[in-house]
Each structure stands twice: as structure tokens, then as C-alpha cells.
Amino acid sequence: MRYIGAPPGTVIKANSEPLNPRLDLANKSPTGFSWGYRGSGPAQLALAILADYLRDENATLAHYQAFKEKVIAALPEQL
């Protein structure tokens, strides 16, 4: 079976810890992270990365869609 982005069981880490999906900020993809296209999985990954990096909920919510479009969607489907 071919997967786009994260195959089932994939754990995305930040600073050696599993990345918090931050569903409390926006629930775009409760089934998990993904990348390589424009969709809900990439949106959740972009949100989680920015929330972890910026540590500012307002800035995260203001910028995660642009980050998804410019960075996360542009990643190769298979890493």
C-alpha cells in the first residue's frame, strides 16, 4: 500500500520527544500528520511544528496555513 506522508505508526519528534499535534488549537487532522500535499494532515503538522517552535498560540494560528503551503506541502511524499 502506498502512503502519502506518514505511514501508520510514524512518530514525528521535536527535541527527541513526540510532537504534540496541538489539537487544542485546531483539530485539522485527528488521524495524524502528513506532508507532500495540501490537506488536513499537512495542516496539522504545520500547526504542530509552528506551535512547538514559536511557543505563541496567536502567531501559530496566524501563520500555520502559509507554512503548510510553502513548506509542508512542498516536501516529497516519501521521505
Score class of each variant (00 low, 15 high):
42 P>I: 03
20 N>E: 15
55 R>L: 12
15 N>P: 00
19 L>N: 10
76 P>M: 02
21 P>Q: 07
36 G>Y: 01
52 D>L: 04
78 Q>N: 09
54 L>M: 14
26 A>W: 11
38 R>N: 12
36 G>W: 00
20 N>I: 07
58 N>W: 06
48 A>T: 02
56 D>V: 10
61 L>I: 10
69 E>L: 10
41 G>W: 01
54 L>A: 13
25 L>V: 09
19 L>S: 11
25 L>R: 05
57 E>G: 05
74 A>T: 09
36 G>M: 03
38 R>K: 13
30 P>G: 08
19 L>D: 12
74 A>D: 07
9 G>Y: 10
69 E>Q: 12
39 G>T: 06
62 A>R: 15
69 E>W: 02
54 L>W: 13
12 I>Y: 01
2 R>V: 09
5 G>Q: 02
3 Y>E: 07
9 G>K: 09
22 R>W: 09
51 A>V: 04
47 L>W: 06
1 M>N: 13
30 P>L: 09
76 P>A: 04
7 P>F: 00
73 A>H: 09
45 L>V: 05
43 A>H: 08
63 H>A: 06
41 G>D: 00
5 G>A: 05
58 N>L: 12
33 F>S: 06
8 P>W: 03
10 T>V: 04
15 N>E: 13
4 I>S: 01
69 E>H: 08
19 L>H: 10
52 D>G: 07
34 S>F: 05
16 S>C: 11
14 A>W: 13
7 P>E: 02
18 P>D: 05
48 A>E: 02
31 T>K: 12
75 L>G: 01
1 M>E: 13
47 L>Y: 07
17 E>M: 14
22 R>C: 13
60 T>K: 06
33 F>K: 03
43 A>V: 04
79 L>N: 04
11 V>N: 02
70 K>F: 06
19 L>T: 11
51 A>D: 11
63 H>E: 12
79 L>E: 02
31 T>F: 05
40 S>D: 15
50 L>R: 05
70 K>W: 08
56 D>K: 10
59 A>F: 08
72 I>Y: 00
23 L>Y: 08
12 I>S: 02
42 P>N: 08
7 P>A: 03
7 P>H: 01
10 T>K: 01
63 H>L: 13
30 P>S: 14
62 A>N: 14
66 A>W: 01
22 R>K: 14
29 S>E: 04
11 V>I: 15
70 K>A: 15
53 Y>W: 14
22 R>T: 07
62 A>Y: 10
53 Y>N: 11
51 A>H: 08
59 A>K: 15
6 A>E: 06
10 T>R: 02
59 A>H: 13
27 N>H: 14
75 L>H: 04
65 Q>S: 12
72 I>V: 15
76 P>Y: 00
21 P>K: 09
54 L>T: 07
21 P>L: 10
23 L>M: 10
1 M>P: 10
53 Y>C: 12
17 E>D: 13
16 S>R: 14
70 K>N: 13
